[in-house]
Design a protein around this nucleic acid. Structure first.
Lengths: 194, 194, 194, 194
DNA sequence: AATGAATGAGTGTTCATTCAT
DNA sequence: TATGAATGAACACTCATTCAT
């Protein structure tokens, strides 16, 4: 699904692109989202022009990076579908997965949030896909009767982003994230689940 | 309460400080928190050195600004206490007030969140005060039986910040904020309130 | 006359080259000489390497472009020869033609001037041809007695380039160009022509 | 006359500014107008921000540089006025002075020409002053009967710029400049001066 | 022969912070 | 105490040219 944009890259370019993505991932893991593009280029041992050719701006690099991680999320999706006892817990597990996904890099939730309002961003597409999946899980849970009718997938996705955003602050108290996730779960669950 | 920097300021310095705060507020309202300190200094007609003397960094300026706004929040506090039918709705109204407060300037939630994990920030004090108030409202609600026991004020305050943070993304769909606030309310309310 | 690069090009290469020239002409008309080579290549639908193969640098592209336009100038040459009442007015008309020719693209006079001092430029050849023609017209005018003896074709050609160069500045006051052309004409004309 | 813009600079700033101008002059003499601003800053031993504070763009630096040289031109002005036999030769000498002035740095005529059409440039003011002086000399010459009536100072100034512009090309043949100056002189002189 | 990926020094500009005046 | 000049690393982005495919 990812990287099907346009024609296939030349072999060397693809290799280079992959290498850049690898390095960028490590770089962002260490420096957070605010790490400089030039720094990433230097780390990868390429000129800034090369980085720019592959990823004309920060967001497209981010989108590619997230696309590369999508495989993991897809596998998680399968696991959730296969193993969840019911649609309600499936939705819950999916939201937890989103929270973790958006917390991959320090500061990642911010551009994701921005992409939710600016449709032109390459990240917007990524988010839209996840909103759709959330919608799907939610719809099943609603059909099952375990989720309230007046909630939308977009809202839950945003709430997951927000929860992830809090992650940085919650480092000292890691329980907070779990607590908030619980809060939200109780919010959308129509039947208060003890 | 504000400016408890030990000794009292000389009258002219105090006037200068107040002037800077007034101007800074207007400036941040227009430009958001990312507005430059130089820009604020210039707007106030002082040199950057003067700004720096009063507020050694961006966060302390922000903290002072929020302190200055505290009067309004205090009045709101009184209103809530006087008019709320019960402790549960008082907590809810307080959280809504926090959401609005943190949304005063575009981008404000971010440094507030950061202050929650870095205790050295001048904003940390401000936040701690609010967490305490939240704790108080929460305790009353718990005594009343309208709030779950396994929730802490800190978590609710963070959740309010996160909700405010989503505000930017929710511009296109203003309902989202309300929805999320509801989600969270349903989360901490022990008795599901229809 | 154009493309005297020794051996003949393969048919497809020639077609390609011609296509590039066509596109480059349109591109430079719109963007001026400072337009990027990459932009030209992209417009022509070829890679930069292909462009580079045909024209190893900006100047050789320019020279080829001007060569392609030479046909028009040649026709003008014929007209001037056929219709001019005398050698003096022929020289004048030729110089006006040079001014217009050098003004074909925004910024063209600059590399032409540079080519006049750096003989290694491919444009130098082009210029030398025009200087020779100017010399010829001048010599006839001098024989006729309508041009001063102490003037050289090179100087007049340079003066024409300079006049064209002023064109940009003269946009607001288009009369300037005409005025300067007149100034120069009065300068080389031995008999002051009222 | 120069540098009376606004209030006086602090002593240290003035010293720094003068130093930058000195260095910039040497730098441009060596590298021509296209020398990089960062390079100038580095040569002067200041950060790019300092350079930017004094001269927010290339043109304002250029204008300041030319202002600094204005003293010399003013002195030349006095000399011309004092020693010229008549208004005609005064005009001529002034134009020669302008040609030399505009040839101070390789490439200087280009931005000067641009400034003639874009009034917003800091260089535009400089040029306007010179046009006025040219107008003055021209008017006197016209009153004297030694200059044609249908010529304007602006045109002569532009012609001087253009002559200076040719300078680079004329390096190989320095006579060219003189010849062109002569051409133009003969152009505006109403009585053909042998 | 053609392609287009890679290069990398360079561009003008910004701004939080320091420090001489 | 106030001023504002100075700092300088950092920023995203460009493009003529080279070279592997």
């Amino acid at each position: 699904m990812a990287g099907t944009t346009g024609r296939a890259l030349r072999a060397d370019a693809q290799r280079n692109r992959d290498h850049i993505l690898d390095v960028a991932e490590a770089y962002l893991l260490e420096h957070g989202i605010t790490g400089t593009l030039d720094g990433i280029a230097k780390s990868a041992g390429v000129g800034p022009g090369t980085l720019y050719r592959h990823f004309p701006n920060r967001e497209s690099l981010l989108a590619a990076l997230l696309d590369a991680r999508q495989g993991a999320l897809d596998r998680r999706l399968d696991t959730i579908r296969a193993q969840s006892a019911n649609a309600g817990s499936a939705l819950q597990e999916w939201l937890v997965a989103v929270v973790e996904w958006a917390g991959a890099f320090e500061g990642l939730p911010e551009p994701l949030r921005a992409a939710m309002s600016v449709q032109t961003s390459p990240l917007a597409l990524t988010c839209q896909g996840y909103v759709k999946i959330t919608d799907m899980f939610l719809a099943e849970a609603q059909r099952e009767g375990s989720a309230r009718e007046d909630v939308r997938g977009r809202d839950l996705f945003l709430a997951a982003l927000a929860t992830s955003w809090m992650g940085g602050a919650a480092l000292a108290e890691p329980d907070s994230t779990k607590t908030i996730i619980e809060l939200i779960r109780k919010g959308w669950a129509s039947t208060p689940q003890r």
